[in-house]
């Protein structure tokens, strides 16, 4: 799946569209440089899932939890060093909770994941190419 976005608004829309295929337990790994739109895309996912609140960047909190029919757990793992650190915030509890996990800076999470969506947000000048792949190990 691929999208071409020319604005934050479109990135958000694509996030909402994409969210329709997310079932309980789904994991979404977002990669992209700073400013590529990872959190914007996540706002779209949240809207698509019917979450009442708009997600904000979890850089400091590590994870933000949002209530919903399917709860949303929004991670930013930039500040953690290793998979062991990730275990230390009880990541597995979120992963197996039946909610949707959206992970920014997912490198240390990959060893714990078997099935996830890989979403790459790539700069193309002012615009973004959003490439989505389903990964099953």
């Amino acid at each position: 799946m691929e999208f071409f976005s020319e604005s934050d608004f479109e990135t958000r829309q694509f996030g909402a569209q994409f969210s329709k295929q997310l079932k309980p337990g789904a994991v979404v790994c977002l990669t992209g440089d700073l400013g590529a739109g990872k959190t914007t895309f996540t706002k779209g996912i949240a809207a698509g899932l019917g979450i009442k609140y708009e997600p904000v960047s979890p850089t400091f909190n590590l994870v933000n939890a949002y209530d919903g029919v399917i709860p949303l757990y929004h991670f930013d793992l930039y500040r953690l060093q290793s998979t062991e650190d990730l275990m230390g915030i009880d990541f597995d509890s979120y992963l197996f909770s039946g909610g949707v996990c959206v992970i920014e800076w997912p490198k240390i999470a990959y060893p714990l994941l078997e099935h996830y969506y890989q979403v790459q947000l790539l700069y193309e000048g002012e615009n973004r190419r959003i490439i989505i792949e389903e990964v099953r190990k």
């Binding site: 060093q81 290793s82 998979t83 062991e84 990730l86 275990m87 490198k107 240390i108 990959y110 060893p111 714990l112």
Partner: peptide
Amino acid sequence: YAEKMGEQK
């Protein structure tokens, strides 16, 4: 646990 899962750093 982390080691068994093939820890990434």
